[in-house]
Design a binder for these strands. Structure first.
Ligand SMILES: [Zn+2]
Ligand SMILES: [Zn+2]
Ligand SMILES: [Zn+2]
Ligand SMILES: [Zn+2]
Lengths: 137, 137
DNA sequence: ACGAGGTGTGTTATGTTATAACAAATTTAT
DNA sequence: ATAAATTTGTTATAACATAACACACCTCGT
């Protein structure tokens, strides 16, 4: 971990492996699987899935990346400065794989309303839209 | 498969394995993994994952079951008569695992609106809310 | 009746995604 | 300095999913 003097901004508190994985993800043009990432950081000393999954897990809890459940892939958050929204909303193009992150606060609030009608108290919601992006349709 | 004379209602056109899996799923109290289902139908002649996955795949395309991407599990559709909505919305209790299916037409339309602002044309969206159900919170 | 085409089934093998468990190294706190 | 906490490296295994192929069965046109 980093020294105490660097604790100021919690978002920059990344471990070595988290930095490697985040760097690799940020250079990718499309969402990457954990094993894609493993391949791309092998030459930087990472050898086992567990190391990658630990880094991914840390980055997710810091809200710097998101996981796409429908494809078991990961991508950088496009709103890394946002307050943790109650929903993560990703519009994923089935043609070119580009992803656009939508406003998770607005959509999350709306969904929370709907759910509340059934007595459900939502904490964390995930929205994945599949279709065609502006370029592809 | 059934005879031609029974083709009338496409929703009842289930294969033997689809019927077995749907029956098993409908008796489960919580969402089941493919391997949970495999265990529960072993004594009815199903022996391999591929058979289960084929049945699940068929049932999903007939909109009789849904898959929960965040937990790799499957459950019966709670609105089996609904016209195929543009969104499947599941509110999943983290305490008791009960799932409530919300109105996918209404929510899907709303999300489609939001996405369109980014030029995205959505076809099929999935919403998974995590939290506590009415009983548990 | 026959054979072609389509669909469903059974089976084996393999591919893909993710975690458990533990020891060693490093960082931080006292 | 030493103890405590965290991060890392490593091996092994668990959990989830599909590929590929042979065979059975039904339907349809001849
Ligand atoms: Zn984000
Ligand atoms: Zn596109
Ligand atoms: Zn449904
Ligand atoms: Zn509950």
């Amino acid at each position: 971990m980093l020294r105490m003097t660097e604790h100021a901004n919690e978002k920059t508190m990344l471990t070595k492996n988290e930095r490697l994985i985040l760097e690799s993800l940020s250079q990718a043009e499309t969402p990457q699987s954990a094993y894609d990432l493993l391949d791309s950081v092998r030459d930087q000393g990472i050898r086992a899935p567990a190391q990658v999954y630990r880094a991914l897990s840390g980055l997710m809890s810091k809200h710097l990346i998101h996981r796409i459940d429908s494809s078991n892939t990961y991508l950088c958050c496009q709103k890394p400065s946002h307050e943790h929204p109650n929903a993560i909303c990703l519009a994923i193009c089935d043609e070119c794989q580009q992803v656009t992150e939508l406003d998770g606060v607005r959509i999350g609030d709306q969904l929370e309303e709907y759910a509340k009608a059934s007595g459900f108290e939502s904490k964390l919601t995930s929205v994945e839209l599949r279709g065609l992006c502006a370029k592809c349709h």
